[in-house]
């Protein structure tokens, strides 16, 4: 699983530019399912036919987004510095002093204009320096509209791991591992590696319309309250198991779905924690509002420092998420 985490997080794939990460995931999941396809927005859909008891069969959509947050070049100045805008939620303070990389491998350093106070630092006072001496030289490597992402390797810290783009490549890892370990499942499973989640759950929306599932289950990261002086109202902690979502800003998980996940975790002694996230949204919301409505839930991986290049999580939690997903998919889904 550590290899999957490395391969998935290190691949390039900001929203709308998911080609590279899609190929990495395709190679990983192709042997694990019956059919793999791609749709108009670029979602990768891995289909696995149900086996066994047909009366139990449901059309189930799994979703984890493969896009990551990034920067998009908006202007190249005469000296060859690149101005940019954010793709997804990016903080100026986190970005300061970072190294970024473009899809073609061009590397850049983030610089910023002088500001009197650090709180005045905004993205429009920052730029990317790719070492070019002029606009013309810069244009040999990048063009307006090109996107960059954090450049950052993987740190292994015992059972904990930090990397860029854990949001939500770790969700992709959970789905891939789930497919690998699933064995018999009565359900027709459409595992969708979605695009453009970071800019508004867009890939999940169209793929859910196409799949038209009976039940949806998304996998994404969630914030935690276990670091020094964290928000007083957050319950989630690293190492306490899979997070079963009750609510975030984008949805209220139907109680029947939440209860199914909780019961499955309890019955199988899988460590879990309940999650209420006051901000943030996930693909679950898009699935839930598809057509005339789809019961959908979310299994979250507790993660620190989300949307930074050092997103940190506990492998035990990832294991718990996989174990829970496997058990849910092996059993009847009546919600």
């Amino acid at each position: 699983m550590k290899d999957l985490i490395r391969d998935f997080t290190q691949a390039y794939g900001p929203s709308g530019n998911e080609d590279q990460i899609r190929e990495v995931i395709r190679r990983a999941v192709e042997p694990l399912c019956d059919r793999v396809s791609t749709d108009a927005l670029g979602n990768l859909i891995a289909f696995r036919q149900g086996r066994g008891e047909p009366v139990l069969r449901r059309r189930v959509m799994l979703a984890a987004h493969m896009d990551e947050i990034g920067l998009i070049v908006t202007h190249i100045d005469e000296q060859g510095f690149l101005r940019f805008a954010e793709v997804g939620g990016l903080s100026a303070h986190v970005l300061m002093g970072q190294r970024v990389v473009f899809g073609n491998g061009t590397e850049g350093s983030i610089g910023n204009e002088r500001v009197d106070e650090i709180k005045d630092l905004k993205l429009d006072k920052m730029f990317i320096d790719i070492g070019a001496r002029s606009a013309a030289e810069a244009r040999e490597h990048v063009e307006v509209g090109d996107m960059a992402v954090y450049q950052r390797g993987v740190s292994e810290m015992g059972t904990r791991v930090a990397a860029k783009a854990m949001d939500d490549r770790i969700g992709c890892v959970v789905i891939a591992e789930t497919l690998r370990r699933l064995g018999e499942s009565p359900h027709d499973i459409h595992a969708v590696f979605t695009v453009q989640e970071e800019v508004g759950l867009r890939g999940a929306r169209t793929s859910a319309f196409a799949v038209d599932p009976h039940f949806g289950l998304a996998f994404d990261v969630t914030g935690v309250g276990d670091t020094p002086r964290a928000r007083s109202i957050l319950n989630m902690e690293l190492g306490k198991g899979a997070c079963i979502k009750a609510k975030d800003a984008s949805l209220v998980v139907p109680p029947a779905v939440k209860n199914l996940l909780v019961k499955t975790a309890k019955d199988n002694a899988i460590p879990y924690q309940l999650e209420v996230l006051p901000a943030g949204g996930t693909d679950t919301a898009a699935i839930q509002l598809t057509r005339s409505g789809v019961p959908a839930g979310c299994i979250s991986i507790p993660t620190r420092y989300i949307h930074s290049p050092v997103e940190l999580l506990d492998l035990g939690d990832v294991e718990a998420c996989v174990a829970l997903a496997v058990k849910v998919l092996q059993g009847p889904i009546e919600v």
């Binding site: 007083s232 109202i233 009750a246 609510k247 209220v252 209420v276 996230l277 006051p278």
Partner: peptide
Amino acid sequence: LMVTKIDERGFLRVAQV
């Protein structure tokens, strides 16, 4: 409101719905 946390003395913290 929705309960987000139960503290070490049994008081509840909440988020808005």
